[in-house]
Design a protein around this nucleic acid. Sequence first.
DNA 1: TCCCTTCTTTTCCGTCGTCAATAAAAGAAG
DNA 2: CTTCTTTTATTGACGACGGAAAAGAAGGGA
Lengths: 390, 390
Amino acid sequence: MRSISRTESFPAHTPAVSQVFTIVLSHGPLTRLEVARRAGLSAAAVTKAVRPLMEAGYLAEGADQDAPPALGRPANLVRVDGGRALFIGVKVTGDEIIGVLADLCCRIRVARHVPLTDRDPKAVLSSIADLAQELRTEADDLGVQVLGLGLAVSGDVDRGEGVVRYSPFLEWRDVRLAELAAMTTGLPVTVDNDVRALTVAEQWFGAGAGLTGFAVVTVGAGIGCGLVVHGQVVAGAHGVAGEIGHVVVDPAGPLCHCGNRGCVEAIAGDAAIVARVREVTGVQVADTAEALALAHQGDAGAREVYARAGEAIGRGIATVVNLFGPERVIISGEGLAAYDLFAEQIRDSFAEAAFGSAARCDVHTRPLPFDEWARGAAATAIQSFIRSDT
Amino acid sequence: MRSISRTESFPAHTPAVSQVFTIVLSHGPLTRLEVARRAGLSAAAVTKAVRPLMEAGYLAEGADQDAPPALGRPANLVRVDGGRALFIGVKVTGDEIIGVLADLCCRIRVARHVPLTDRDPKAVLSSIADLAQELRTEADDLGVQVLGLGLAVSGDVDRGEGVVRYSPFLEWRDVRLAELAAMTTGLPVTVDNDVRALTVAEQWFGAGAGLTGFAVVTVGAGIGCGLVVHGQVVAGAHGVAGEIGHVVVDPAGPLCHCGNRGCVEAIAGDAAIVARVREVTGVQVADTAEALALAHQGDAGAREVYARAGEAIGRGIATVVNLFGPERVIISGEGLAAYDLFAEQIRDSFAEAAFGSAARCDVHTRPLPFDEWARGAAATAIQSFIRSDT
DNA sequence: TCCCTTCTTTTCCGTCGTCAATAAAAGAAG
DNA sequence: CTTCTTTTATTGACGACGGAAAAGAAGGGA
């Protein structure tokens, strides 16, 4: 086992350095002047901030060769050297763990899935450690150091303390996961809620880059939502935030596991869709894939179920937008496989329920390979690394 | 008319100065050491920040004489000298304008109501100017200068630009109110949405002081909500935010003016309650006061209407809490006159619909004299004044 | 009276970012 | 082919802000 103190840390000596690095990270290759403009700094400050980052290898002077030959001295683009460092991101679900090796630009280099048989923290921890070790040897083959480990777990997670307060799927309570994982892997560990992790990835490396307020809605087994307001991910005072899945859209609707009726999740979650398709069509579909196939074959009942789900999601999104006023909503998640079946309803019911000019909020969709969850975890690790000196 | 350039500005030369002043403003008399602790500054920095503010008269060394004689050198409490400056806050409604003269600590010194007959911007502006002038002579009598004017208007207001984009009650569109009012009064003018203004007052001078996330829910003619997340008031990308009044709690409910059915406002807004009480009891109550009286007399039908309203509000609050995770919710508004009639339902349905530990969010109520709306406007003026140099 | 404790101020100093001047790297003009 | 113009990048002097440490101030207690 390597010592935890061995891992190098980010040379973020001053606020300006962090800021400059973050801007270059999110907004690709930029000239120093452009960075200065975006950061609200002087050009001189950028030059000075860039130097130590280049010396340490985190930034490089790169060429975007489609430069239109403009007047004046040609610009020198600054970009992040993704290959400078690697991070491991791991998403832990109830029955499998997914790990990725991502570079500093959060591009996935390697991905691995491992089934999970025992949910006991110790067992899970050892699986994580094994997976991390495996990815680490991959990193060694690439000749690049791994500088951090991010873990994403669903439920109530306290990132600051690195504690999983309560995870229903894993049946965990108050597990000091960051501490434990740091001990066994020797890496700096960041633990966060899975949806928030995904939101961080979107904020830094995705469709949320540069926005001060947006929402990420995940559609799948559960319906989740990550929120960024004032440029920061919303964590919630008691670990609860973004519970769009439990916005009630129909008080007379089906019972939800949360105890209420007609929650978005009780209508549009995977289990709800499967159950409802069985009920409506009489076909005993086993899972979402079969339900989806049925609907794609043109079964009217199944299609209606998906339409209902879309309506519920659209209403949930409208609620979020009416309350927050985000600049953008990014719909994502495994459930997007069915997107063609409910896209229209989502848009229509969103437009209908949005209040006034809130309807102008632009609603994106982004396909979500399952690795993406683990990539989110890696993004939190990158974030922690960059802020480690702050 | 006095020149606009005459008004003095706040000596906030450095971030630390602003920060120190804000802390003292919100958290009453404090020792310098305590301020340093809260601000994360050194004691020396606080001493240096306090000096210019004291020289300018904004801070004073005050005595809280219930000091327990502790060991060591007695502490010297620093407090804001409320009497140093006055601000005018004006709330504009469809049929009256309410103005207050508030001191630097946002304590109301004088309040005035003026009926409004003409909603044309010019007419309203001249009423505002007259009211401001009246309050200004009051200020002169006190021998204190007025340093700012805050205007609160319901609807879509862009504070940064000082423009009322759309106000349904006034039937205004794109009125450059700040500019106009500054011209006629010669004062620095801040224009903001009414609910947000109230939220600012709560954040700096009320139950939200020191919290990084809370919600203010106003119950009255409309049901509104101001949100503070990460220590800042949420404005919304398209001017829409906090529309708790249009959270749908019952898709089969009464039609709302927004076009949907069963919004919180369509169930618990003043008009909805009056209409429903008439419908249920057959008594042709003319307004909220009569409906309230009927319920207080024990009329079962009327009480049921209020119970329903309470349930709707509670569900709306739960939605906000599930999405944001504020530390506290402050329920306020004229509708609180009926609080005894729906308090229980609010609490119950909130507890029922809150997801997991979100139910731990503490729900406050605070009576809201109607002047409070104008006080909110004054608070925005104070805020602008303090930040004017930043 | 002297010491001890706690709050406050002073002095010195390092750091960070801006300003203004300068260098650099082209194409355009003559 | 030089010189100018234009734009980007760098350099070095400068000033301001906040921290550390030490000294000062204002009490109480021994």
